[in-house]
């Protein structure tokens, strides 16, 4: 299927690059801990008669290696899922799952603050859209949230089905001017996705309303 979205290839590659950079950073951190833990085990076992305390230290290191490998597999699993979002230019997506994955990927950014996905109990929300570009938009919004919100604050992301499509709402972001939240490119992405923004300054929420089916450039 050919791309029918209006965001150029360079922008898409830039997004992929940003995600891969932060994911590889996270992976390096996990592997660095594995490496140091293995190194400490090796250091301890150089002693021909390790003490009980040494044996306990080795057990702690072994647990750390197992934990960090689990963490690494989780990271790789998310990266794999993300890679497959580029399989089709337009596809049916489950929005909550997509937002959840994007929030996890954005959480690897070095300046990330905690982001909690609010459980709306709404079940699955499915729309037909451009998965990669929707991930790009959500990622950009979370980047803005991390930059604008003070460290340790929480941004809740809620997904719900609405008449004609889906809505993603991000708490706290409604307190800012759109110019501070979204670059021109990001706003263009909203348009490409056939969506529109809802700024609710009273409750401090930013909403993105997305159509049930993205309109292709050809109008199909």
């Amino acid at each position: 299927m050919t791309s029918d979205a209006g965001v150029n290839g360079e922008e898409r590659v830039r997004f992929l690059g940003r995600v891969i950079a932060s994911v590889s950073h996270e992976l390096k951190n996990a592997l660095a801990t594995v490496s140091e833990s293995a190194g400490l085990i090796s250091d301890i076992l150089r002693d021909p008669a390790p003490s009980e305390q040494d044996a306990a230290e080795v057990r702690v290191c072994a647990e750390a290696v197992a934990d960090e490998l689990r963490r690494s597999f989780g990271i790789i699993g998310r990266l794999n899922a993300f890679a497959h979002s580029a399989d089709h230019a337009i596809a049916e997506v489950e929005v909550r799952g997509l937002v959840d994955l994007t929030a996890a990927l954005a959480g690897y950014l070095s300046f990330a603050s905690p982001v909690r996905i609010m459980d709306t109990g709404d079940g699955e929300v499915r729309i037909e859209t451009s998965p990669l570009q929707l991930e790009d938009l959500v990622y950009r919004l979370l980047e803005s949230a991390f930059r604008l919100r003070h460290r340790g604050s929480e941004v809740r992301v809620a997904v719900r089905g609405v008449e004609g499509g889906a809505e993603i709402r991000l708490s706290e972001l409604g307190r800012y001017r759109l110019d501070d939240l979204l670059s021109e490119e990001s706003r263009h992405l909203v348009g490409v996705l056939g969506g529109h923004l809802l700024l609710d300054a009273e409750v401090g929420e930013l909403g993105i309303r997305l159509p049930h089916r993205i309109r292709s450039r050809s109008g199909a």
């Binding site: 951190n29 801990t33 140091e36 833990s37 190194g39 400490l40 290191c61 960090e68």
Partner: peptide, 15 residues
């Protein structure tokens, strides 16, 4: 900020 990494590295340097 990777506590596990930095704590083990500190131990190895102490050794």
């Amino acid at each position: 900020d990777e506590e596990r990494f930095v704590s083990v590295l500190a131990k190895r340097l102490r050794l």
